[in-house]
Amino acid sequence: MKALTYQGKEHVEVKDAADPGIQHEKDAIIRITASGICGSDLHLYKNGIPAAPDYIIGHEPMGIVEEVGNEVKTLKKGDRVVIPFNIGCGECFYCKHQMESQCDESNPNPHTDAGGLFGFSEFNGNFPGGQAEYLRVPYADFSSFKVPADSDLEDEQVLLLSDVMPTAFWSVEHSGVKKGDTVLILGSGPIGLMAQKFAWMKGAKRVISVDQVPHRLEHAKRTNGAETFNFSEHDEIGKDLYHETNGGADVVIDCVGMDGTPLSQENTSEKPNQFGTISPILTASEAVRKFGTVQLTGAYISQADGFPLGDFFTRNVSIKMGQAPVIHLMPMLYEMVRQKEIDPTDIITHKLSLADAPKAYDIFDKKEDGNIKAILKP
């Protein structure tokens, strides 16, 4: 099969790879019909998450079931499925309590307690990703969402159930956004833009988008009705936002993570034990109100110097964070899409073939050509 493979920092190639096969009786093999490129994929692309050459990337796939193991009970050949980026066994304490991103059984790596993820290197189980023609899905009954056979929704309408929609929804829910809140969302990539929609749906009074990419900010304003701040135009963005929100936002949701581009004008430098910067956290610490909440959704993948622990403690700020558990949210979000309560497709700006994936990564990384979300179709 053809698959997008990691070949070194900022270097990916579409190459021939071995077709996946059934390894355990709970596995399924799917033929990929669409796969998204996620901002988290850039951590591998930038070599922030170590990956071996020829490792297959991608954790936002969907497709058609081609083969199932003998213990798969709910799927059959020909079923259309969306595959969540979480891999969950469905039987452990965490999977049974809607915390499937921390499944006890899905990650064979003995050096971490984290759950298994598709396309996220050895640290998260070394499972090949979904930017390919075929994918092996472990624990397929639990780690997949079967699109109803009578559904008339296009791939693009359900693909984002794999990550973007449930991650954004969980971020807003986990942060505790309530009616009348001022919600500040750092980053207007796909997760940030979707979180803006859900913040409004929870009854937020103000939704403020912070980014430095003009076309993303314009999208946030035009499509989501968010107020916008271009942080590159502010010397002290956190303090400016604090004053703009009259003493700080009730909730700050960080959809950036450990980014290579500081969300401030501070003179930050990379440390030997730190990939990128924690500037979004520093901005959040300045912009949140006393007794407010900061939700960290963007990926943080190493230890961090300069964490503003004292600021958070002395101002009674609650910190919430983590890898979103998305599997249990997919049926509910599917119904929201089916009933036209929300349209996830407005963030999709590029549809390319798998052969053009290296070009798609370059555009996405450089934020060129109006790119917000790219979809690969083998």
Rank of each mutant, 00 (worst) to 15 (best):
P358L: 05
M332S: 11
E60M: 03
N86A: 10
M201Y: 02
L263I: 13
P378Y: 07
R222Y: 00
D163W: 10
A51W: 01
L135Q: 14
L282E: 08
L241C: 01
N86Q: 11
F93Q: 11
F198Y: 15
K367S: 13
I30Q: 04
Y300R: 02
D181H: 15
I253L: 14
D54I: 00
H11C: 12
F145T: 07
S101D: 00
C92F: 04
Y361C: 12
G306L: 04
V158M: 07
E122C: 08
T112N: 14
I319M: 14
E233V: 01
L4R: 06
A52F: 03
E105H: 15
N316Y: 09
G225K: 02
Q157Y: 10
I363N: 08
F364R: 09
E60C: 01
W200P: 12
I327S: 00
M321G: 12
I253Q: 07
E156Y: 05
R315V: 00
E91I: 08
F364G: 04
A51T: 09
K340E: 15
D113A: 13
P344V: 07
G63C: 08
I237W: 06
I32Q: 12
L309K: 09
T314S: 14
V288Y: 02
G225N: 10
E233D: 11
L160W: 02
T297I: 06
V326L: 05
G39P: 03
T182L: 00
G115S: 12
H59Y: 04
S264K: 10
A149E: 15
P378Q: 05
G90E: 04
N107H: 08
S318H: 13
Y139T: 01
N246K: 14
I30Y: 05
V256M: 13
T228L: 05
K146E: 06
P138S: 03
Q339R: 13
G189M: 00
F364W: 03
E341R: 13
R338H: 05
K239D: 14
M330D: 00
E105L: 14
I185Q: 09
R206H: 13
M330N: 01
A355P: 01
I301Q: 06
L42E: 05
D155G: 04
K359R: 15
Q303H: 14
D311K: 14
D254G: 14
T245K: 09
G248C: 12
E368L: 15
T245P: 11
V288T: 06
P308S: 09
